[in-house]
Amino acid sequence: MSVDEALLEAHSSNRDSRLGISERFVCLQAGPADTLGVIASPLGIPQRLGWVICHSFGSEQVDLHLTDVAMARGLARAGFPTLRFHCQGYGDSWDYSVPPRPSTQLRDTLDVLGQFPTLVGVEQIGLIGARFGGTVAALAADRVGASRLVLTHPIVNGAKYAAEVLRSRVITDMLGEDPNHAVTAQQLKAELALTGMVNIKGWRLHGEVFDDLRQVDLLKEVGRFSGRAHVFQVSRRQTPSPSLVRLVDHYRGLGAETDLDVISHVAAPNFGYEHFRPLAKDVLGDILEGVNQVLVERTIRWLEPETAGEDGA
């Protein structure tokens, strides 16, 4: 065999003194197969609280991955070991045979949560996610008794989200090459009923997955979490969204110490959607960099009481 495994393994991790972190790839078991994860760790002594980041659904997994990466690196720099990984059907996972759905993402997350404490040696676990990733994080936190939760503009009601997913295809068509023949949401629903699948910007949305999405309701499914939670709203407006207010009230009703934090930003409508736009002549850049930076800064500030209580960070 001619593969230089020593060379490859020597490069499976990276120590970055500029970022103040190290990162290493890890092989994880998630559901029926292996998948890939990355653990970001502080260069100093780590905190006893570690974080697992849950990614979003469908095309949003790619469109929000830089938010997940920024959060992982920011938390690691602040002393918290943080894991990000791919559920089955995404990225470098090994099982593409079954279309991912809320239940498979929750299953994979619970599997990974079982492996995480041993991988990094932490005593407490927090979960983070953006948009539908926040929904998965909330559902997983409820089941494993996580102590901390950061939800970035989570999807509270799956039915509304499923409708938004269909609408995103309609909008893409309207902005595309042939707006006169843009599909309507009604036509997409009819196609789902007839063929069992629709194309959402290149993502195969199957009828049963659509139905699964519609069933998700955090207000009904979350019933045990009693740790500390921080909910971000990312929007242009500064007034809190009624659905997020209801979610925060729901958590408070469970005994969880919960805050709602509104991040108002001009690029907020792109959160969860394509976000590379011209920043200068002939140069495309990420217009959500500012949002991600604020998310990290405010999360770290929210965690300050915890870091103050530790020696190592």
Partner: peptide, 15 residues
């Protein structure tokens, strides 16, 4: 058969 391979127990390396 297929597998992801890495040095999962290795300490971070200055590459």
């Amino acid at each position: 058969p297929r597998k992801t391979v890495l040095a999962s127990e290795a300490e971070p390396t200055a590459t």
